[in-house]
């Protein structure tokens, strides 16, 4: 189920790349470069995403439904994505399945607007120690960076910073606040 949805978005992303004038295999190539540039064990999410995309993108699929995608692509490229924050579970930097749609919109935008730059700002909730949370925020931001790179965004467009638990989005000492504070903000 999740896999199917994700394949669709990836396919969409790859198609956008073609529309933007990149090579047909750009996504796959970048993916390989991204994997080589980072320790594969560091970002297990990205590694598994990579293998699923290999099977998802085929020439046959790309041939399908191009017109429909072209329309969608124009819509996406025209506007900077509205949602700029994705959320994480406690003490993990794994990208949640429900974040991928948002991330893919940014991928699409960044690939088309190759002069656009983003700062990926990683954050943690207040629980636990400050320096550990600083490291956790960095890992979350790095996870998004790797995801973007794997999807073909140029690393020159990406900068990573962690604020740990120092800049809470929502005040409060409860699950509702904590879940909103464990996040990466994608700032243009």
């Amino acid at each position: 189920m999740e896999f199917k949805k994700y394949s669709k978005t990836l396919f969409f992303g790859a198609t956008l790349a073609i529309l933007a004038g990149c090579g047909g295999n750009a996504a796959t190539q970048d993916q390989e470069e991204g994997a080589a540039g980072t320790d594969t064990e560091v970002q297990p999410v990205i590694t598994s995403d990579g293998s699923s995309s290999d099977s998802a993108i085929t020439g046959e699929q790309m041939g399908q439904d191009v017109e429909n995608l072209e329309e969608k692509a124009e819509e996406v490229v025209a506007a900077m994505p509205e949602i700029e924050t994705i959320y994480f579970d406690f003490d993990t930097s794994s990208i949640r399945a429900d974040s991928r749609e948002v991330l893919d919109m940014h991928v699409a935008y960044l690939r088309v607007n190759s002069d656009a730059k983003v700062v990926l700002e990683g954050h943690a909730d207040e629980r636990g120690t400050r320096e550990y949370n600083m490291a956790l925020g960095l890992r979350r931001a790095n996870a998004v960076k790797s995801y973007f790179q794997v999807q073909g965004v140029n690393s020159d467009q990406l900068e990573v910073v962690s604020y740990g638990e120092e800049k809470a989005a929502v005040m409060g000492h409860n699950n509702a606040a904590w879940s909103k504070n464990r996040r990466v903000e994608i700032q243009y």
């Binding site: 320096e131 600083m134 960095l138 790095n142």
Partner: peptide, 9 residues
């Protein structure tokens, strides 16, 4: 100190 200059903390 803690650095992530080589990628990881």
């Amino acid at each position: 100190v803690v650095l992530s200059k080589d990628g990881n903390p």
